[in-house]
Amino acid sequence: MPKYQFLLNGKEFEVDVPGDMPLLWTLRDVIGLTGTKYGCGIGQCGACTVHVDGSPVRSCLVTAASVDGSEVTTIEGLAEEDRLHILQQVWVDQDVAQCGYCQTGQIMSAAALLKEKPNPTDDDIDEAMSGNYCRCGTYVRIREAIHTAAGFYDAS
């Protein structure tokens, strides 16, 4: 099997998987990082959102081969050592989650949004977060949490 190398959460990683294996399953079943979730497998739910070279992607739709040489960040790599990302802290403080299954994907999409737009409007949030489904209906708190986090966000 071919080998692919990428920078995963700041560390060099090499995986030996079929080239068409989605990044989602490479992360979950091969590498063992299970914070990235399987929801639909067709890019409709957003539970598998990760960053590839800084942009949010649905990891069920990109292959291991396609991220060869790229920088991949998953939810496990969002905090810096014991410093939570501001979104993670606000998500805890404001008790956003219910079942919690979609929330890692929600946070990864929101993190990409804040990087691009540190002070997003409601319309910015609607657009950036529209690909992330929450079955529990936590959208009200997701929106509030993004606004709260934006108030603290240091884009540097």
Partner: peptide, 14 residues
């Protein structure tokens, strides 16, 4: 009270 598993949920350790 924030639910007891909040931290695990947001760090992917859920």
């Amino acid at each position: 009270v924030s639910q007891v598993d909040s931290l695990d949920i947001v760090t992917g350790a859920g």
